[in-house]
Design a protein around this nucleic acid. Structure first.
Lengths: 221, 221
DNA sequence: CCACACGTGACAGCGGCGTGACAGCATCCA
DNA sequence: TGGATGCTGTCACGCCGCTGTCACGTGTGG
């Protein structure tokens, strides 16, 4: 689950981000409205935790931007003022939920989760490529009918490649999709994970390397 | 099964909530219309037990709000006045059932159950998965015909997993469905309960762990 | 011959998960 | 009333597998 935390108070932003990461979410942080807008443009978040008071772009404006999109993230609005009035204003702007500061952290976690659950479900169809089959519902992968035992990262990596098939994905693109944007750009964890995945997939090779370009699921040719 | 009880008389609200919890339901309570609306926004309830007389937002208004949604909960309206007139008004507002105060508690339970069963996605008569059989009405579970003695939580957990089958549920999702909103998000009670459930279910394992992801009923494969 | 990208094995840290023990609590029964 | 029993959540502990880092080997193209 990908979450963006937009909050100009650095300390609070970090606490929140860390806590959500503890819950297994991939969390990015934006400290002002403009960079938040940029991130929302580029990344596909499930939930945006949005402070109302923001430098750059106001939280309200940003909220309208997000909710105006087609494949939009769910918005959880944070606000210092907890009046019922504010609540109404926030919700009419399209925020999907509303939380007044100060808040209890567990409550924030609950709300983020429940927002993510309300999101229209992602791809439900099983992906097929040659003798490979990936069922996102059962969360199983089989090759020639033989079930494979993949780790979380391996599964996510394979899913990304199969969704992109017959196209390819660069290492950088994979790093963004499967890891989060704070991943060290100089890491070679993608290479390593592809290697481990290849071993589990067995022969014949199901993932081909496009040297200097990226990776792609092996085609019929 | 998740239920919201909306009732401004605290004592009555608590009695009802406790009684439903005894039946293995995860019950939240709202004492006024506004907080009820907020909870309905955030949580996915199966049934809302709704008092007609409410401070904040009237029961009627709230009822319209709920029934106007796409993924809506079923509404059981409670009312002090039991006239036929009221009955008609209530039903035209979209309430799915109607119960006049004072009522017999067993009757309330019956109606809540039957409403939950009427929900589109809700439980069929009995759930089956391999050699496991779960009867939500009689609250019995058998494996290979052998009846099992499950506690309330164990039953609810198994029910949730069997409803989700062949899909999986994360620990967080289970916490939301089986426990109520006051559950500590950092607890490991899900792990423990799954463990106890597994022991009672015996061999071969009926629940498989998807490490880092969640749990799922063991498939035929 | 060198630079570079990629694959691979080794390794250490860490976190998830299962388990047993325990305490609080409600229920039941004597 | 008091003890026994079963359910539930917390905690500590140990195990195991995942994950990222690093070093090194290999192949390729300049």
């Amino acid at each position: 689950m990908r979450v963006l935390v937009v909050e100009d108070a650095v300390a609070l932003a970090e606490v929140v981000a860390e806590g959500l990461r503890d819950q297994g979410m991939a969390v990015d942080v934006a400290l002002d409205g403009l960079s938040a807008a940029a991130k929302v443009d580029v990344n596909a978040y499930d939930v945006v935790v949005l402070d109302r008071d923001l430098p750059g772009l106001s939280g309200d404006t940003l909220c309208e931007m997000i909710t105006g999109r087609s494949e939009r993230a769910m918005v959880l609005m944070l606000t210092a003022a907890g009046s019922a009035d504010d609540r109404v204003r926030g919700l009419t702007l399209g925020a999907d939920d509303y939380l007044a500061k100060p808040f209890h952290f567990p409550e924030l976690v609950l709300r983020v989760r429940s927002l993510a659950r309300r999101r229209p479900a992602a791809t439900a169809r099983t992906l097929t490529a040659g003798d490979l089959e990936l069922d996102p519902i059962r969360r199983t992968v089989t090759r020639r009918g033989v079930p494979l035992n993949l780790s979380v990262k391996e599964f996510a990596l394979l899913e990304a490649l199969m969704q992109a098939a017959p196209g390819y994905l660069s290492s950088e693109a994979l790093l963004e999709q499967v890891w989060d944007e704070n991943a060290d750009p100089f890491t070679n964890t993608v290479t390593v994970t592809v290697g481990r995945l290849r071993r589990k997939l067995g022969e014949p090779p199901a993932i081909v390397t496009l040297p200097g370009v990226g990776y792609r699921i092996a085609g019929p040719a």
